[in-house]
Design a binder for these strands. Sequence first.
DNA 1: TATTGTTATACTCTATAACTATA
DNA 2: TATAGTTATAGAGTATAACAATA
Lengths: 149, 149
Amino acid sequence: MTSDDDALIDGLVRSAFQVMGALTRIGAEHDLSLTQLRVLGILRDRRARMTELAAHLGLDKSTLSGLVDRAERRGLLARGRNPGDGRVVDVFMTPAGHELAERVEEQLRRALAPAIERLDRGRRDDLAGLLEPLVTPPLPVEARPAPRR
Amino acid sequence: MTSDDDALIDGLVRSAFQVMGALTRIGAEHDLSLTQLRVLGILRDRRARMTELAAHLGLDKSTLSGLVDRAERRGLLARGRNPGDGRVVDVFMTPAGHELAERVEEQLRRALAPAIERLDRGRRDDLAGLLEPLVTPPLPVEARPAPRR
DNA sequence: TATTGTTATACTCTATAACTATA
DNA sequence: TATAGTTATAGAGTATAACAATA
C-alpha cells in the first residue's frame, strides 16, 4: 500500500458514508436502527441462535437480547426453542418482518439509483467486478484446496 | 436502473459495512463512536459553529451539545466565542485532537490494506476512478455554468 | 463445570420540548 | 421576533457482571 491509494481510500470511505446514510434514513422511516436492519438482512434466508447472531454482528449476547426483544414486540421477529438443545433460543423472521425487509431493499435500490446512474452500463459492471474481490475475504489456509506437487 | 445492478448494490453495501466495521473497531480502541470520528474528520481543516456541524452530520443541535461536551472533557475539542455574533459557539480541534485524528487515519489505512492489496495497481486506479462520480453529487442547477447558445 | 441466554446497571447517542441569551 | 445553544427528559444501543437453566 502506498499513498497513491489515498484517492481510493477516500472514495471507499465516502461511498460507505453515502450508503450508510441512505440505510440510516430508510431505517429511520420504519423506526429501525442500522443494527436492526442488519438483523433483518441476516435472518432473511435462515433462522439463527442468539449467540450466532451476536457473533455475526460483533455484539455481546446481552445486547442481542434487547435488540430481539424490541423487534419481537413489534412482530418482526420471533423466538423459538431449539429441539436439539434446551439452552438454545432460535430467532427467525415473521411474515411481517419479511415484508418490511423487502420494502427496505426496494427503497435502498431507489435511493442509490441516482448515484449509480452516473455510470454507464459498462462502468457499472466494471465497478461491481472490482468491488467483488475487495469484499470477498480469501479462504483461510485450512479451507484451501491443497496445492499439487 | 435494472436488476442487473443487484451485484453492484450488493458490492457497495458490503464494502460500506466493511469500511464502517473497520472505523467502528478503530474508534472503539480510542473510545470514539462513529459520530465522534466524523466530527474529528470535519474539524481537521476548519473550525465550525455548532449549528453548522449539526447540519453537516444530520443531527439535532441538542445532540451536538452532548457530543462536543464529551469530546471537550477529553481535551479533543474546544469551544470558542465567535467575535462577530455573540450567540454563536465555534468548535475546533485541539492539538491532542489532531494527533488522535492522524492516528485513526493511519490505522484505517492499515485496516483496509489487505483488501485493497487484492487488486493490482491498475485496478486500484480504475476503482478510484469509478467511485469518484458515484460519490460526487452533480452541481445543483443554479450553480452550473450557463450553457452557451 | 461449561455453555446459552436473560437481567441489572451504567454510559453514549439520539430527538423533542422548554429554556436563556443575543440579534 | 427570530436565531444559536444548552438543558431536561426519554428511548434505543452498547458492554460488563451476575444470574438461571441446561448440557
